[in-house]
């Protein structure tokens, strides 16, 4: 069953005088992986950050248009941004663990959302770490500093931290760019498992990765969404000449 989880309508983003995105329209299906590709500075990360309204952290940013999450508009004056970000989690390019223990990192989200009961927190931490395929490696040292984990483990810890908040959508901004090949392939396996329960939107500069893991792909260029379709179609039969040039490696 297909279900439209997210829908963007004429999204435009401005940084002061610079326009970073032009009328982006995209339908994102539930429990699918949607990949956003394109050369550096094409606006793919900016688009990703419109979905959890993270662009507004930067002074001088303005967003026009609308995004619907479960048919509800997220760009509304009285929209509760905290609630939105609870439903839409995000994994960043550089794994950034907080300077706390492994346990505290995962418990951070549930705690700020008001869960105090220790048993329940421990349950959530265990479930999230298991879902992020990290539990077996670190279950005996939950109280040691998260910063001592390897890069790949840190990235999975960050994912566990996101899962602990029980989001519906997970945004990933080049989550593998700082990882070695083995960690990357583990992360890709994990994404394959996560999509059973979550809607995933992933920005990647790696086209093979997009082709391997995604169901839908959007190609961005200079702030425009040039082409958006099923991944197999886009890579085999691109409709737009620019998409073809990009995926065949003529630029980018």
């Amino acid at each position: 069953m297909k279900y439209l989880k997210l829908k963007s309508e004429n999204i435009k983003v401005f940084y002061k005088d610079f326009q970073a995105l032009y009328d982006v329209n995209m339908d994102i299906q539930e429990k699918r992986v949607t990949a956003l590709i394109g050369p550096s500075g094409c606006g793919k990360s900016t688009f990703l950050r419109t979905i959890n309204r993270l662009n507004e952290l930067i002074e001088g940013t303005r967003t026009e248009g609308q995004i619907y999450l479960d048919e509800e508009p997220i760009y509304e004056k009285d929209r509760d941004v905290v609630g939105l970000r609870r439903k839409v989690g995000m994994v960043f390019q550089k794994p950034s663990v907080f300077p706390m223990s492994i346990y505290e990192n995962v418990a951070y989200g549930p705690r700020i959302h008001g869960i105090k009961d220790r048993n329940r927190l421990s349950e959530i931490v265990e479930r999230s770490l298991k879902a992020a395929n990290l539990w077996n490696e670190i279950s005996d040292r939950l109280n040691s500093p998260a910063a001592r984990l390897s890069g790949g483990q840190q990235q999975r810890l960050v994912i566990a931290r996101v899962l602990a908040v029980e989001p519906e959508v997970i945004l990933m901004d080049e989550p593998a760019s700082a990882l070695d090949p083995i960690s990357t392939s583990r992360l890709e396996d994990l994404i394959g498992e996560l999509k059973k329960n979550y809607t995933i939107v992933i920005v990647t500069h790696n086209m093979q990765q997009a082709a391997r893991i995604s169901d839908y792909t959007g190609f961005f260029l200079n702030g425009h969404l040039v082409e958006f379709s099923r991944t197999d179609e886009l890579f085999v039969n691109p409709r737009d000449k620019r998409t073809e040039d990009y995926i065949t490696g003529r630029f980018g």
């Binding site: 993270l54 970000r85 700020i112």
Partner: peptide, 24 residues
């Protein structure tokens, strides 16, 4: 990144400051 990650988890600004920024 600490701030971004915390806010993206749904923390308010003050929660982010008091629980992540100040301890660091």
């Amino acid at each position: 990144e600490y701030r971004e990650n915390s806010l993206a988890l749904g923390a308010s600004k003050w929660q982010t400051i008091s629980r992540v920024v100040l301890p660091s």
